[in-house]
Nucleic acid binder design. Structure first.
Lengths: 348, 348
DNA sequence: CTGAAAGCGCTTACAG
DNA sequence: CTGAAAGCGCTTACAG
């Protein structure tokens, strides 16, 4: 157990702020919660006192008094605990900073929008959705219709007003091709991601553009389908490697598939990267598990989740609906992590 | 935002309980917090009212009034986000049930006990430690000396009073051998875990016992060292498979190494499970990623974390120190998950 | 647009 | 061993 005063510096309260600003506590509360309209001069006074005093509201008191507590739900369908783990780390930190409650919910991947609607307003104040659920049309439509505060992670859409964050899959894929070309590769195979993920299309587009810029042939038998699974990567890898004129480098749209390519190469007696280079995407745990370790694109997942929580909190606080939000696409920085699986092609 | 009454059934308060039990609110509070001694007749009355009314304390009020909030820290050194993710899920749920605060902290694996000591009482009320940190002597000694409420996950020691939870590595390993023997295998190889983890020794002991019971030779060239990494599993697999009289089944002390064995088999042109069966341990994500999927032992990690939170809360609440706790080893149920990587040996 | 009052559910002293 | 009082920091009506 720990008394508050052991850890918190004698905390400044709403009343302190009120005194400092020369208004009533009620007014401070109103400013803080954007409730009814406060004269803007008053508002500014209060805000500056808040800043001056470095005030931050006591969540316990808040929820005791008003029963108002912001509940943010992180919804996921895919049980990749690695992906989820990173997301959780970031979300947890942000949630405790802003005093929200975090609810983590697993739902069947084929959940009907209707069963979601039920929980919506009754249970949560905002939603963070990760792929592939965020790519499901019915779910997006529901959330949009309801004007429910939602942040989509890693799944961009054409809907201009939807709040979406992630990395630029298109540009990241171009970067991978640039990297491979820079190494000296001129026959580069690509294994696509699952067709139901929008990011798959963007990664493919990036590859094609990168190849085009390098003046290299794109498409044809160098692009094969995949489903984000190890096994599909293995089969696709076999297919590419057994072609009459096999690629010297293979870029797979995620790490699981890239690991599958490693297995395919091994099965054919090929050494990576000596005989063929392999690049993945995501920097998931398997990237540093398999040998050789995978060169791959790293997404800042925990930062992503943190930003999502903050943004969602703002949306809810300002009573914004998705439709009101203007700039709502946020691209975070990714990085190309160079490890052992890619190297220059061997001299013929 | 959501009003409390929208979600909570008109909640029963401490006052309701007091009325029901015919005592003052203060007495109820005392019973609930095991503070000063309450006459046991009174105590029972209160407790039964609590049960009858299905009362659960409002954490917000609790922390507002007393500033008493229990902070539990989950400490980890190894960045396996998959393992951590599962642990987090369980911990989060429990924490919200009991109204504790969860702090998740990553520390360098080689952290000095001294730098830990600093944070100890100032910041946390209890600690959950996962391997391999829980196997570090210096850290255990520090925690023990300080009498700091701690639950060790997955790392059992000889210290009788330390509170430790996990699965029975020894028995689980025996079960794997039984399973393999039942399938018809009589030459079974074993790849050991990292020597710094105590669980490694227990898994080895289980294997030896299982083999002994089956009347099979143990040890010798059938037991090779490993370090829990994919690469060490691959090398160990190669070593086993290249022996003059190779095993027909290989049990690796974790899934990463088992996946490495798969790679080794592939490199030698062997098919799993046709030519050799492979069994892992942990049921980590890689088990269902690689192909064939791994037969393995599943640990109930999220349940484990949940139990740890609850236990820790009790330890803290009752002001118990480790040394006072009596039965402090908890074994949770594991399960042997049968997938594609193990089958009967082929008829010669 | 702003304020004075009351109360959220619990716990802290302080008395018996 | 048990209770009556006051208050934690905020927000909800309710008034101006």
């Amino acid at each position: 157990m720990s008394k508050k005063n052991e850890t918190n510096k004698a905390s400044v309260t709403l009343i302190d702020v009120a005194k400092h600003a020369g208004v009533s506590p009620m007014t401070v509360s109103r400013v803080l919660n954007n409730l009814s309209i406060v004269k803007s001069a008053t508002r500014e006074k209060v805000l500056s006192s808040v800043e001056r005093l470095n005030y931050s509201p006591n969540q316990a008191a808040r929820s005791l008094a008003g029963g108002r507590s912001t509940r943010i739900c992180l919804l996921y369908g895919n049980p990749s605990s690695a992906y989820l783990g990173e997301l959780l780390m970031g979300a947890l930190e942000a949630v405790s900073t802003y005093g929200y409650q975090l609810v983590v919910n697993r739902v069947p991947e084929d959940i009907s929008p209707e069963s979601l609607r039920k929980d919506l307003h009754r249970t949560w104040d905002g939603l963070i959705i990760s792929p592939p659920m965020g790519d499901v049309k019915g779910i997006r439509r529901l959330l949009n219709e309801e004007g429910f505060p939602t942040v989509y992670l890693g799944c961009f859409s054409e809907n201009k007003s939807a709040c979406e964050m992630g990395i630029d899959d298109y540009q990241a894929s171009i970067d991978v091709i640039d990297f491979l070309v820079g190494l000296g590769h001129s026959r580069i195979g690509f294994i696509q991601g699952h067709p139901s993920h929008r990011s798959s299309a963007q990664r493919l587009a990036g590859v094609e553009e990168g190849l085009r810029r390098a003046g290299l042939p794109a498409g044809g038998d160098l692009v094969v389908p995949g489903f984000f699974t190890y096994r599909s990567g293995m089969e696709a890898g076999l297919q590419l490697l057994k072609a009459r004129n096999p690629p010297t480098a293979i870029f797979a749209a995620n790490d699981d598939m890239a690991a599958g390519v490693l297995a395919a190469a091994s099965e054919m007696g090929l050494k990576v990267p000596r005989d063929v280079s392999v690049v993945g995407f995501d920097d998931s745990p398997i990237a540093t598990t398999v040998w050789p370790n995978l060169t791959t694109i790293r997404q800042p997942l925990s930062e992503l989740a943190g930003r999502a929580v903050k943004t969602l909190g703002d949306m809810i606080g300002e009573g914004k609906r998705q439709a009101d939000t203007s700039e709502s696409k946020t691209y975070l920085e990714y990085s190309l992590i160079k490890r052992e699986s890619a190297a220059a092609p061997k001299a013929d």
